[in-house]
């Protein structure tokens, strides 16, 4: 295996891109990712916050204490992973982290690995999705992505600019990818529009260091409130409106052992909206 360290986008070769490595290194070790070429992209991905622009190489630890960052994103970073992981992990890498579905991590030949079964639907799925879970029931694990989605962030890559929502794709028979990043494309920056108030609330297995069972981000800008959820769908999930939850539970299609997430989501959405004032 070789390790390349390009210092600008023009020198970028294809290979396994690695930033903080918190996700890549375990996946390489488990044989879920493979390749003869590792490309350390830290030399070309911007790091740090300038006005409303966040370098994709900025660590979660840097963001959690940065007063320029809206509350929802700061809090999502502060509640994510562990201190060491937040020191190492970049926000760009966080957006592209793979599912924590244990079948997928244990290399079961499930739909997301190209097979024709979702083992979680039939088997153990306590942590899994309650919406858009028909094909693959995995639950997106990123607190940060939910916060950025509520904040209506835009993504600048080496090839284009797009709203964060368009970075993600609910996997289906035809396309099993969870993100729409092209081969060789790197995320360079995130752009945040102005926001009046924002908040992130997270239900966890324990008080520290737990993936979101359900995470709810809410942000108000120009009189509109955007609400996005982590841990409920294979991708970060934007709610059409808070009222969608208030009027009943039709919005969700939980599996037998994910029903408990529905009232948790409803309660957190209510609290998040109330917290916006």
């Amino acid at each position: 295996m070789e390790l390349l360290r390009p210092s600008n986008v023009d020198q970028l070769d294809e290979g396994v891109y690695i930033h903080g490595g918190t996700e890549v290194v375990p996946l390489l070790r488990d044989g879920i990712l493979s390749g003869e070429r590792l490309v350390d992209i830290r030399g070309l991905v911007p790091r740090g916050v300038r006005d409303a622009t966040i370098g994709a190489g900025t660590t979660l630890a840097e963001l959690e204490v940065d007063p320029q960052i809206p509350a929802a994103l700061r809090e999502a970073c502060r509640l994510a992973a562990s201190p060491q992981l937040r020191n190492m992990g970049s926000i760009g890498g966080n957006l592209l982290q793979a599912t924590r579905c244990w079948y997928w991590r244990l290399k079961y030949p499930c739909r997301l690995h190209g097979g024709d079964t979702c083992f979680a639907r039939e088997g153990e799925h306590r942590e899994h999705a309650i919406v858009a879970n028909d094909f693959c029931a995995s639950a997106h694990p990123s607190d940060v992505a939910a916060a950025l989605l509520a904040l209506d962030a835009r993504v600048r890559t080496s090839q284009r600019e797009l709203p964060l929502a368009e970075l993600y794709h609910v996997p289906d028979e035809a396309d099993r990818n969870v993100t729409r990043l092209a081969a060789g494309e790197v995320i360079l920056e995130l752009e945040l529009p102005p926001v009046e108030a924002s908040v992130y609330l997270k239900a966890m297995d324990r008080k520290k260091w737990s993936f979101p069972q359900v995470g709810v981000a809410a942000a108000r800008a120009g009189g509109e409130t955007r609400i996005a959820l982590a841990g409920v769908a294979p991708v970060p999930w934007l709610l059409e409106s808070a009222d969608a939850l208030a009027s009943g539970d039709e919005w969700a299609t939980p599996l037998p052992r994910t029903e408990w997430k529905v009232p948790v989501a409803r309660a957190l959405v209510r609290r998040a909206v109330a917290a916006l004032g």
Binding site: L3, I18, G21, V25, D40, A61, N87, M88
Partner: peptide
């Protein structure tokens, strides 16, 4: 496996030595 890299705690088990 925590070590410091430039004074910042990091997990050496998932850090590539060459990086």
């Amino acid at each position: 496996c925590t070590v410091q890299i430039d004074g910042v705690p990091a997990l050496s088990c998932i850090t590539l030595a060459h990086a």
